[in-house]
């Protein structure tokens, strides 16, 4: 699919923006953590859209946030 851009996001309602970002993030996160991809994606969607866009373009920042999310998730579930 074509890259998701800030202008494409801005043209969509807020909930649709999160949907668009989630559809892009989920397969990337699923490749890292198949069992937790849904929960991790849900957590990351609480982050600002501008930062989520950056994460889509930067695997390093995505991996960093995914690691943070897993730590929070595990602490939450204890």
């Amino acid at each position: 699919p074509e890259p998701l851009t800030a202008s494409m996001l801005a043209a969509a309602p807020l909930m649709d923006q999160k949907q668009l970002l989630g559809e892009r993030l989920y397969p990337m996160i699923h490749a890292l953590h198949p069992n937790l991809a849904g929960k991790i994606t849900g957590m990351l969607l609480e982050i600002d859209n501008s930062e989520l866009l950056h994460m889509l373009e930067s695997p390093e920042s995505l991996h960093s946030k995914v690691d943070e999310a897993i730590a929070v998730l595990q602490a939450h579930q204890v």
Partner: peptide
């Protein structure tokens, strides 16, 4: 407090409802 329903799970192709709980 602890919310056992958090975090909301994203499912591809399913309309995202996560923000409704914030």
């Amino acid at each position: 407090g602890t919310n056992i329903n958090w975090p909301p799970e994203f499912c591809p192709g399913v309309p995202w409802k996560g923000l409704q709980n914030i």
